[in-house]
């Protein structure tokens, strides 16, 4: 996760992160799995899951490796090109799942108005996940928080709508991205 985390820390908040499922075929021989994973490093993609299905060996003696990668679109496309260059057989590039992160600042009595409830109600939405809630308490008791919400594609309106509803109900000022 280092690259994505670094970009987030650098304030590049609206990094469009794409998740991609790849089905790659490799020879059932020592070192082949490492040979697939090795090129991913350095191309700006992160490995989310690796499923090495040795039991599913085909007639040619090849086994499928199911990979889920996460990263910016351009970087993932570099991975695919690299695999092709190296002669790996790509069986499937599954439907991609776009995710993005949106930020908002909330001002109000954030703690008194049940902080956990605010986060839970957002997390209840499908494809919406609060991945950061950075709160600063203030002398006059009105606190401020930066909230980062990870979203699947097309969920921005849903998430912002819910956040606006919560803010209106709890009398928070919501400051979202222009």
């Amino acid at each position: 996760m280092e690259i994505l985390l670094l970009k987030r820390l650098l304030g590049l908040n609206k990094v469009i992160i794409v998740r991609m499922n790849l089905l790659v075929e490799v020879k059932d021989a020592p070192g082949q799995l490492v040979a697939v994973l090795e090129p991913i490093r350095g191309l700006g993609a992160n490995i989310v899951t690796v499923i090495h299905k040795r039991e599913a060996k085909n007639e040619q003696g090849n086994v499928p490796v199911q990979l889920t990668l996460e990263g910016e679109k351009e970087n993932l496309s570099n991975v695919v090109n690299k695999f092709k260059d190296l002669g790996f057989s790509i069986l499937e590039i599954n439907g991609t799942l776009d995710t993005e992160i949106i930020s908002a600042i909330l001002i109000g009595h954030l703690v008194d108005e049940n902080l956990q409830d605010t986060i839970d109600r957002l997390n209840e939405l499908e494809g919406v996940f609060v991945n950061e809630f950075n709160i600063q308490l203030s002398e006059d008791n009105k606190s401020a928080a930066l909230i980062n919400i990870e979203l699947n594609a097309g969920k921005e309106e849903l998430a912002l709508g819910k956040l606006a509803e919560i803010c209106s109900e709890k009398d928070f000022l919501m400051i979202n991205n222009v």
Binding site: L12, S103, N134, K142, A144, N148, L173, I175, V178
Partner: peptide, 27 residues
């Protein structure tokens, strides 16, 4: 219409740390 009188220095600081500024925007 929402104005800026409730904007706190803490909110501005949080925004700043995340690479943002707070502005009163007309849309």
């Amino acid at each position: 219409v929402i104005g800026i009188s409730n904007i706190t220095s803490e909110a501005i600081e949080l925004a700043k740390d995340a690479g943002y500024l707070i502005k009163l925007i007309g849309e």
